[in-house]
Nucleic acid binder design. Structure first.
Lengths: 203, 203, 203, 203
DNA sequence: GATGAATGAGTCTTCATTCAT
DNA sequence: GATGAATGAAGACTCATTCAT
């Protein structure tokens, strides 16, 4: 291998690594900023200011503010969904599935937003990938409940309720430092399985 | 009473009524616009365009866009809180209180946002008045659960879970036309009282 | 008429006059700037800087940079066309028509761009109104030439040639201070009617 | 001659050829892009994207976008001028000179811009070389007209008229696919020599 | 108090140019 | 000499807010 080729390869490698590093830095900054200010209030300059890059550089990586927001949301949803799916396949009972799925979600939240000075403005149904997560949950519930599901039961309301528990308990968890995914999971699962009085009793 | 004074009084009355009417018109328009577009995307011109007033007039009633948003949130919370408080005082059981409180909340949502073309971006903890609602709920729960509440129980998580159910089922309800506060209340109450499997069974 | 109404009317009148004045000021500034720099190189700030208005004010009068450019072009074309049309109807001979039309065009140029420090970047075929002017000329020529027009004659080339003369002689005229529409018209008409040698002879 | 020297020479030759090839490639791309988009709207990236070079490489060949535009204009003018000069020297009559010069100009246009999807924004007087072409034409006309030129004749207007014909008929020609330099030349020459009525008669 | 045009700071985005490799 | 990512100045445009009438 000629030294010219060698050098070119080394160069390409280095560049690729820099690009990846920059991309990650921008994504991380955007995650924080969106969490703190919300999509609209966050400006591209807010994002780029948290990196050591120049404003124009942002646009070498993302075509627009909207694109990075979508990328972030899609990315989160796409990392979450296979985990939920795996939990569904592994689960032998509603309880087991809830523990797996909610635990995974809370650990994900803690990792993703544990650093952020503030709470994310989660909109669970904005992008296709996010809608897919919602559908995944709804479908898993139907499947696992099976014939315990009365015909007149309103699956949309029930799934909304379960997701509501997970999201609000999750938010509450993020308010604490350090976040405690295990404890939060225990409460959320009990709430969903047995209701508030039972959960309050510590059952 | 001289007729001069009389006339002045009449005049003052008329003015006051106009002021109140304008203020209400602006608040109503803002409620709609914020619900449809969210706080940031909504512009003062969007709001004022839905009234028959001029843009400058907005600032005779509210100091800024932020102030009207806060006023709206506070106003909603202040209308909701006494209702919740009344329900607490009247309630003879957890079930009765939940039915009263959630029913009131859902009817409130339906009235307030039933018209809006889109969902409100509620942030239940932004203003003092909103925080007060959260505290109200938390306290009511503590009170009503009484000694059924194990010492190690995490009241914040539990309240968050209950509120999560109410908010997400409420949002789901708003997606339907027409909204059905009674049905939604029934599901939410069952979920909170007995958990998902029981609610699914239609218990 | 109550003094309230009176005052309101006076107010409305004053405002209307201010609006008209501002609009004219912006148009005049834009005319200059576009002439000096060309459409692309000219910035809205260049335009607004030549008025005593603030940058945002521009957008109270024109939706965009493109719109004002179109407005300017359309406006010029729409002032020119009826004049050309009138000349066509009045003309008893090709010579009379040319003198009328070219004279009108040159006087128009002198008025419109005589002040400008530099030459306009005229694009005679960009907007519909401009195309209409070109069509007007082409049609007038056909009509007036009548059966003196050989069947194989290429009207597009001929009209282009006549217009080329008018535009280049016109530009040349604008380079002189003060511009001399009469002299320029005389040369252009002779050139078109009899060709260069005859015009050179001063025929 | 040592083989080291030989190899160095070969190397130098190869480099020179590469440099020339790259330069030509960039110029050709720029010619197209400027013709299609105009100077301002064209970006250096547009130009470089039509070559197989990298964006930074552009600046090894041209100091700036402005420089390449000037180079292009100068280059065109410098290729055109000797042809016009030769025609002047060869010409035995005004007609012969016009046929030679305009024919050369139209063939030049057809070659240079025939491919372009759109028309060039020619500004015949921007660069020194372009001004030289104008002067060349003006001078040739004076010379050839000789004493047929009345003392009071305005040579600037006359030259402008002739050039106007050539440019507009030339543009018209470029609008047709394929361009027809011979036909266009015939019309332009007749127009200049005898005027519009004669040209229309097909004389 | 009502009006609505004027203001100018701030937003997203583009692009000529530089520079480390 | 070639590469292509980084830079940051500059542009078009928006909008909360002010203010003369």
């Amino acid at each position: 291998m000629s030294s010219v080729t060698e050098r070119a390869l080394a160069e390409a490698g280095r560049r690729l690594r820099t690009k990846t590093r920059n991309r990650e830095a921008i994504l991380a900054a955007a995650r924080q900023v969106f969490a703190e200010l919300g999509y609209e209030a966050a400006s591209v300059r807010d994002i780029i200011r948290r990196t050591d890059l120049a404003s124009g550089t942002f646009y070498n990586y993302f075509r627009s503010k909207e694109e990075i927001a979508r990328a972030l949301a899609t990315d989160a949803a796409e990392r979450l969904r296979p985990v939920l799916r795996a939990e569904r396949e592994r689960a032998v009972s509603l309880e087991a599935w809830l523990e797996g799925a909610i635990g995974a979600y809370f650990r994900f939240l803690a990792e993703e937003y544990g650093q952020a000075a503030s709470l994310p403005q989660l909109r669970l149904d904005a992008t296709p990938a996010q809608r897919a997560v919602f559908a995944e949950v709804r479908e898993s519930l139907s499947l696992i409940l099976g014939d315990r599901l009365a015909p007149q039961a309103d699956m949309d309301y029930l799934a909304a309720g379960a997701i509501g528990i997970a999201r609000h308990v999750g938010e509450q968890m993020l308010r604490r430092a350090p976040p405690d995914p295990e404890g939060a999971t225990r409460v959320a699962v009990r709430l969903i399985l047995h209701g508030l009085p039972a959960a309050a009793r510590g059952a």
